[in-house]
Computed example of a mutant assay.
Amino acid sequence: MTQLNPRKFRVAAYAVVIDDGKMLLSRWIGSGEKLWILPGGGIEFGEDPYDAVIREVHEETGYHVEVQRLLGMQTSVGKRVSNVDGLEYDYHRLRIIYEAKVVGGELTFEVDGSTDEAAWFPLDQVPALDHVESVDFGLELLRAAPPHGHLPSFT
């Protein structure tokens, strides 16, 4: 009998924050390698994604943001190795991506979380950064502004 891999499903809310030609990113440290990501994260039970993205951006960057609009969603299914127990999971991510702007606060770094740094990068430097694909996806959603909030597939 074939043993099935455990499954994990994660729903998270992220923000594309651009100001004066620069993009705000957080540095994720969850997998042992450091990758730049859109600021945001997991939605808590009973929490509205709109509220989650505001909370998560503040936790990771120190900034207070105002959501401008829902850009769309990204779904990704694949395997990953858990950095906690070493097991391989069938992992499904659903990312809800908003456009937001900074309305207060100051740049600070998350302590004891899944990120360790936040920074502003000129848009033309973002492609060269070690980053997760959702950064490119969020920029493409912002650029294309599909009325249904969905891009077929993105590589």
Score class of each variant (00 low, 15 high):
T2R: 13
G46I: 07
L151K: 10
L70C: 01
G113A: 07
V126Y: 00
L38N: 10
R93I: 05
G105F: 12
T75K: 05
V16W: 00
P146L: 03
Q125A: 04
L38E: 14
D19N: 07
G138S: 07
R93H: 04
Q74E: 14
G105Q: 10
L151I: 15
S82L: 13
E66L: 04
A128L: 09
H131Q: 13
L35N: 09
A100V: 12
G41Q: 00
S26C: 12
V111N: 13
E99P: 07
A13P: 02
V65D: 03
E59L: 14
S26L: 04
M23D: 03
L71I: 02
T2S: 10
K22M: 03
V11H: 11
V84N: 07
W36E: 00
G46H: 13
L141V: 09
E66V: 09
Y14F: 15
E66R: 15
D48V: 02
I97K: 08
V102K: 12
R55K: 03
G105C: 09
R27Y: 08
V11G: 06
M73Q: 10
E88N: 02
V53D: 08
V111H: 14
E88W: 02
A118M: 10
D112P: 05
T155W: 10
Q68P: 03
Y14D: 11
P39I: 06
I97L: 13
K34R: 10
G78E: 08
E56L: 07
L25M: 01
D136E: 14
L139E: 00
G138K: 01
M73F: 08
G138H: 06
W36F: 09
E110N: 10
A145M: 12
N5T: 06
G62Q: 08
Y63N: 03
D48R: 03
G40W: 08
Y50L: 12
M73A: 13
P122G: 03
V132C: 06
